[in-house]
């Protein structure tokens, strides 16, 4: 399918939600029985939640507001690593794994469109990643509210900071998924796909790091502007990746002529 056709398919609303749901259901059922995915989904959030909590509770209170701000910013950046790394790992293996197991070709013989398959796989990676990340954020904020020193709590619970976290979690996950899927449709090996997928998902974190380290002062306006930027990046990534899904190349490892 040419790039123009793929984009036309999306624009004309020919995406069948039943097929997308079928892909999501199958993927989620498969994850639940996959020890590697389950292990990653369990261990990674615990590690990435423990570190910020320790960091916040050991923060000195006799430092300047700027120093405390920087510490809180870097701590909360940790919470954004899970919605980046987790879905990137899952998405990066989702197509190449099916190729290796021989399950992709039977799927492609059905009426499912490339866009439906990609959206289904993206949602299946997005839903658990965002759920886990919001749960982590909730637990972290609750712990800070209940047990942290008032000075630290005041800095951590600033409105723009929380808004940025809430907006950035799904948007960063979205970028990570498209980056992972882009790697997955091109890669021929699962391990290479995992490594490249994780690497490709990291660049947008740099933007959030600028806010975390107060290079850009966090405010509601800045948080929303960056969120809109990330959203545009996600849409652009999807539009670039959908045409990369070349059925002929995926089946024969040769590009369609």
């Amino acid at each position: 399918m040419s790039a123009i056709r793929a984009i036309q398919a999306v624009r004309s609303g020919r995406i069948d939600s039943t097929r997308v749901r079928a892909v999501v259901r199958k993927e989620v059922t498969d994850y639940r029985r996959n020890r590697f995915v389950l292990g990653t989904m369990t261990v990674l959030p615990i590690l990435f939640l423990a570190n910020p909590i320790i960091n916040i509770f050991t923060a000195p209170t006799n430092v300047s507001h700027t120093a405390l701000d920087a510490r809180v910013g870097s701590t909360m950046l940790f919470l954004l690593l899970v919605p980046v790394i987790l879905p990137a790992t899952i998405a990066a293996t989702s197509i190449v794994n099916e190729r290796e197991q021989g399950t992709l070709e039977p799927v492609l013989t059905t009426p499912v469109r490339s866009e439906e398959l990609l959206i289904g796989k993206a949602l299946a990676a997005l839903i658990p990643a965002v759920t886990i990340a919001y749960t982590m954020l909730g637990i972290f904020l609750l712990m800070v509210k209940l047990f942290a020193h008032q000075q630290v709590a005041d800095v951590t619970l600033e409105g723009p900071r929380i808004l940025a976290q809430v907006l950035f979690i799904p948007l960063l996950a979205g970028w990570a998924i498209w980056a992972g899927l882009a790697v997955s449709v091109r890669a021929n090996d699962v391990r290479v796909a995992q490594q490249l997928g994780t690497l490709a998902s990291l660049p947008p974190l740099a933007i959030t790091a600028l806010m975390a380290f107060n290079v850009i002062t966090p405010s509601f306006r800045v948080a929303v502007l960056f969120a809109v930027g990330l959203l545009l990046l996600d849409v652009l990534a999807y539009r670039l990746i959908a045409p990369m899904f070349d059925r002929e190349r995926l089946i024969t490892a040769r590009r369609a002529k």
Binding site: R25, K26, T29, Q101, P106, T110
Partner: peptide
């Protein structure tokens, strides 16, 4: 296809349900 290409972690019915969905 020559290899049946089934999802090993899913049951027979779950495999077929997936394709029922793909065919809508």
């Amino acid at each position: 296809t020559e290899a049946p290409g089934l999802y090993g972690r899913l049951s027979v019915t779950e495999n077929l349900k997936y394709f029922v969905g793909l065919y809508h």
